[in-house]
Amino acid sequence: MTMGAVMYSRETTTQGSYDPAALVEQINNTILPGISHRNGFRGINVSGDPSTGTAWILTNWDTVEDLVASRQDADQLRRQATQALGGTVLGVREWDLPVVHVSDRPPTPGLPINVNRHFYDPTQLHEVVSFFAWVAEPMYRSSPGYRSVRMLVDRTTGEVLVGSVWDDEASLEEGFSRLEPIRDRAVEKGMKFVERTRREVIFYLAQ
């Protein structure tokens, strides 16, 4: 992670028949051929919750201009993939991605993901991002079983998602407990903790 090297993400949330193998097939055969040639494309991450049949597809982009330019292709590919899978698109969102770090052991399918959802005063997000980058992220990196962490930010609403990938459930819970003092400090800075959810890695590609 390098401060200032902000990327951008488009998040598509789908629900329906939960079939990771079929979803990966659509990613390889439909989505990647349709977007990987676009300027600024930096990869795709897919996670899911088998208990609800929900999947989240994140495509990552170098600049906001790259993100905007890819919208039309993304809409068409979303319709094609959703029709083939028989699911429903619940929503599409675009996020700033100011902090992302992947260890020398990148995420692989089946690994657990912890997602924390917060809200802040939008006018204080610059300070919040800096705090996360220089205080929280190093603690993630040094935690046993850590694989990756990313911070998604909506600068209009103040919503923040922090997703982290771990070797197993034990290291995930240990990491969550280890970072409790950081969350306490974030509350002092105005964080409103909304929820904590679990997902699993379905697909991971960075470039």
Rank of each mutant, 00 (worst) to 15 (best):
P138V: 08
E200L: 09
P107Y: 04
I44N: 05
M151R: 02
L205E: 11
M3C: 07
L85D: 14
R198T: 11
V194M: 06
R78H: 10
N45A: 12
Q83M: 13
P50N: 14
G40I: 01
T14A: 11
R141H: 02
S103E: 08
Q207E: 14
Q83N: 14
G86H: 11
Q26G: 09
M7F: 03
S9L: 07
F132K: 08
Y140M: 00
V128I: 15
S148Y: 02
T157R: 10
S148F: 02
A84N: 15
E94V: 03
A186L: 15
F132Q: 09
N116E: 07
A74I: 15
P107F: 01
G91I: 12
Y18I: 06
V162K: 03
V135I: 11
I27F: 04
M1I: 04
A55Q: 11
W95P: 01
A74P: 06
A5V: 10
R199S: 09
S148I: 01
L85Y: 08
R38C: 06
F119H: 13
A170Q: 03
N29E: 15
T197Q: 12
A186N: 15
A186I: 13
L90Y: 09
V149E: 04
S9M: 14
K189L: 15
E137T: 13
V187P: 08
T13Q: 11
R196M: 10
G40F: 00
E195N: 10
L67Y: 00
R93S: 11
P107K: 05
T12S: 06
G145N: 00
I202H: 12
Q124D: 13
G48E: 11
T157M: 03
E25R: 08
R198D: 12
T82L: 14
A69N: 09
E65Q: 12
P106L: 09
